[in-house]
Amino acid sequence: MSKERRVESYDRGRIEDLGRAKDWAIHKPGMWAFYLHRFTGLVLSFYLVMHLGVLGTGFWLGHEEYTVILQGLESLYIVRVLEIGLFAAFVFHALNGIRIVMFDMTVGLDIQEQLFYLSIALSFAIVLAGVPFFLL
């Protein structure tokens, strides 16, 4: 942890900070909520940058190119499947975000686990309902 030590000590390294594979299995819901929130947040941020990059063709290249590029991307099956992932990331991040804002207002701290399960269940329901819109 710290570089200033009073006595010689052994630093077990970064793996301790991140958690080892066998410890991941026993993580509590609150920790999973954190991991998922952070992961989906990074996914969405990355997508935002890519999204603005791709749509930028509308300005930099022109309208015809914009249509060609968008329709070209959408004709790829993998893009559509990934879009479901994007939608899932948004839905979970939004629902868990509401959970976090509740905590910030010191509401529901006692039922945080149940709220996490609720956000997971609702995410599944919403994403499943949304699947046809992405694949059809």
Partner: peptide, 29 residues
């Protein structure tokens, strides 16, 4: 604080630091 609740889970004295931190940040805002 990212409300992981790990501290609350492991505390042998059943203290909830998460709750304390949330209350202070709420007051600060």
């Amino acid at each position: 604080c990212h409300t992981q609740f790990n501290c609350t889970e492991v505390c042998p004295k059943n203290i909830s630091p998460t709750e304390a931190i949330m209350e202070m940040s709420r007051d600060a805002i």
